[in-house]
């Protein structure tokens, strides 16, 4: 894109380019198509939820975007730069951070060390500077520690700094994983079922945390979530996945009113919001039908 717009074009017309722009994403595992024709546009500074029944391909889409798996087809742009096809650590260095459905911390490191590792790409001191304890190394190290403590406090677990990750309660492990993701200074944070296993009070605290991530840190948030209360409270836009493709996209109000969503995802129209996490249908069955 040119730096300066041609003077004869009205400035108001071009809509702001999305921060994350996914087009035609497809992932096949052998002959089994997990997702196809997935288009996602995540606006900068927004909170965007992805919902859908189990096996709909939500996590597969996350895995493709973070290069955890390589997509079969499609393009992924982050802030105008193409990131599909890059190795996972390079994608992370472009500013994509994520958490996992089943928490993946470094279990035998303390909370503080987990967050320190999250800053890996910020450290520049060389081996010899580290061994000799040079000024730059000590300054970087002190900064890294201060930043780590700051983010532990930000997610609400400052008292856990010295605890081994595997000894922490589940809810705190989830918060620690978010702190580890945030400390790298990402542009976009992808949360995979952050509220899984949380009680309503913890869910409310999570909603508040996501709000603060957006407003105080200015980080765009994409989350996969089954807890409708959480989704409706935080998301500005919602994308609904079903059977490996996108069913629809809209504001929380539009999604709640959409008959197809209610049928595909929430079950029969009974007025009650069911917990779809309990849906027993295994992924393979679902995808066999698409293929």
């Amino acid at each position: 894109m040119p730096d300066v717009l041609p003077p004869n074009l009205p400035l108001a017309i071009p809509p702001r380019a999305p921060l994350l722009d996914v087009h035609g994403l497809k992932k096949a595992f052998g002959g089994m198509i997990a997702i196809q024709n997935v288009d996602l546009r995540i606006a900068e500074g927004s909170v965007h939820a992805i919902i859908g029944p189990n096996g709909a391909g939500k996590t597969t889409a996350f895995n493709c975007i973070t290069a955890f798996v390589q997509p079969t087809a499609g393009t992924i742009y982050l802030g105008g730069e193409r990131i599909d096809g890059l190795p996972a650590h390079v994608v992370a260095r472009h500013g994509v951070a994520r958490t996992y459905q089943n928490v993946r911390l470094f279990p035998n490191m303390t909370a503080l060390e987990n967050v320190l590792v999250g800053q890996h790409r910020r450290l520049h001191a060389t081996f010899w500077e580290a061994i000799l304890g040079s000024g730059r190394f000590r300054r970087e190290e002190a900064e890294a520690r201060a930043r780590a403590h700051h983010y532990l406090a930000f997610v609400g677990i400052p008292q856990r700094a010295g605890d081994l990750a595997r000894h922490m309660p589940y809810g705190d492990q989830r918060r620690l994983e978010i702190a580890r993701a945030l400390v790298a200074g990402p542009r976009i944070l992808m949360l995979d079922e952050p509220a899984a296993g949380m009680n309503p009070a913890e869910g409310r605290a999570l909603v508040e945390l996501i709000e603060r991530i957006r407003t105080e840190l200015g980080v765009t948030v994409v989350l996969i979530e089954h807890h409708m209360r959480v989704v409706m409270a935080v998301a500005e836009r919602i994308t609904v996945f079903n059977r490996g493709a996108i069913l629809t996209e809209g504001t929380p109000g539009e999604i709640q009113a959409d008959e197809r969503v209610i049928e595909a995802y929430l079950g029969r129209r009974s007025g009650q919001i069911a917990a779809p996490a309990a849906s027993p249908e295994p992924q393979r069955q679902m995808e066999a039908r698409i293929a």
Partner: peptide, 26 residues
């Protein structure tokens, strides 16, 4: 002490998670 050492520990604990915090596993 060194960042490489920290990266080595992280890769030993969880290779995939290490890649996703920006560590070049290879």
């Amino acid at each position: 002490l060194s960042p490489l050492g920290k990266a080595m520990r992280a890769v030993a604990e969880d290779r995939d998670a290490a890649a996703l915090v920006g560590i070049n596993v290879g």
